[in-house]
Structure formats: C-alpha cells, structure tokens
C-alpha cells in the first residue's frame, strides 16, 4: 500500500511526463488512427505509464511511443481495417495542422510534403517522421518502429529518397492519393 507521499510523487512524475510528451504522443496517435481512437490511445498510454511508472525510462518518449504503437496496433487489429492513401493524407493533415496565420508558401509546402508522405509505405513514413517530427535518434526510433537500428537506417534512407522523388513529382500526387496502394502498383 502506498503512502500519500508516494502518491504525490507518482502524480508529480505523471504530470511531468504528460506536460513533456502528451502533444508528441497525441500527434503520433493521430498519424496512425482516427481522432477519437487517438484520444483513447493518448489516455491509455499515460495510464500504462502510471501503472508502470518505475519502469518508464528516461528519456521517456520512446517508451511512450512504443506503448502507443501497441495500443494503436491492437485497435487496428480489432477493427480489421485497412487504410487507403486518402486516409493517410487525412491523418497526416490532422496530426500536423497548419498554424493560424501561416504564410501561403508554408501552406503549399505543407500540402506538397504531406502528399509526398502519404505516398510512402507506412513504415517509410514512420521512419521519416519519428526522426523529423518526434526528434528521436535512429536507435530510439528503431525501438519505436520495432526493428533493428541497421534496418531503420536502411528504411530511413529509402524513405528520404522516395519522399524526395514524390515531392519533386508533386503534380501527380493528387491523382495518386485517390487510389489504393495495391491498385497503384498494379497499374504501374
């Protein structure tokens, strides 16, 4: 049985974790699932941290993202859903909204990059964003992605190359995102 002091300490740690990482975990969840499910993933991730507070390492973000990944995967398996490229683009837009008052150039850049990201495979997109958006080093990002660091480097390299190709070829992206990946490859 814990004492009130223990409980206060635990709550302080949880609050600190929340303040430091909740936005990142929410953005991660929004990249992978719909807004309502992302809300559940966010609260469940920190609930898991609350239960295993002593096991949460520093830095905590990779641990939290791995937990969120498990929860998202469970949800997807439960729902048995497959995602289209249109879904991917919608989720990317939701996870990285354009700031109020952003210049038009940034809006155009955002549209180009998000469409390019939507054309990557899920793993390639994840590799790029764990580094560029979540600020993880490749070793920590590999833990979140569930692969070896060497495999992650390969994945990241390939993802950057394909994203560069996709954003250079942005004119065709509007058409591509209307088709499923399977269809896209069949027609290639």
């Amino acid at each position: 049985m814990s004492t009130p002091e223990d409980d206060d300490d635990r709550r302080s740690r949880l609050t600190a974790l929340w303040d430091a990482h909740a936005v990142r975990v929410q953005a991660y969840a929004l990249r992978h699932t719909d807004p309502d499910s992302a809300q559940d993933v966010l609260s469940e991730t920190f609930l898991a941290a609350w239960r295993r507070l002593d096991a949460v390492p520093e830095p905590a973000l990779p641990w939290l993202l791995v937990t969120a990944r498990h929860l998202v995967r469970n949800m997807h398996r439960a729902a048995g859903r497959r995602r289209s490229l249109t879904d991917e683009l919608t989720r990317l837009e939701a996870s990285a909204p354009l700031p109020d008052g952003a210049p038009e150039a940034l809006a155009t850049e955002r549209d180009t990059l998000l469409r390019g990201l939507a054309r990557l495979t899920a793993r390639e997109r994840e590799a790029v964003l764990l580094v560029a958006w979540d600020g993880l080093a490749p070793a920590a990002a590999a833990d979140v992605a569930g692969c070896t660091t060497a495999a992650f480097h390969v994945r990241l390299h390939r993802a950057r190359r394909r994203l560069a190709d996709a954003t250079d070829d942005a004119g065709g992206a509007g058409v591509a995102v209307t088709r499923s990946r399977t269809q896209e490859r069949r027609s290639a």
Binding site: Q26, Q39, D40, E109, G135
Partner: peptide, 18 residues
C-alpha cells in the same frame, strides 16, 4: 519536414479530454 512538426497540440479539445 521539421517546420511542419506539431509544436502545440493538433487537437486541444481531445488532448484535454484524454
């Protein structure tokens, strides 16, 4: 890409609900 990284909650209402 980093310029697009969300620095504030992309969905404050759901963040508060969570």
């Amino acid at each position: 890409l980093a310029r697009l990284a969300p620095s504030v909650s992309p969905d404050p209402d759901r963040l508060a609900a969570a």
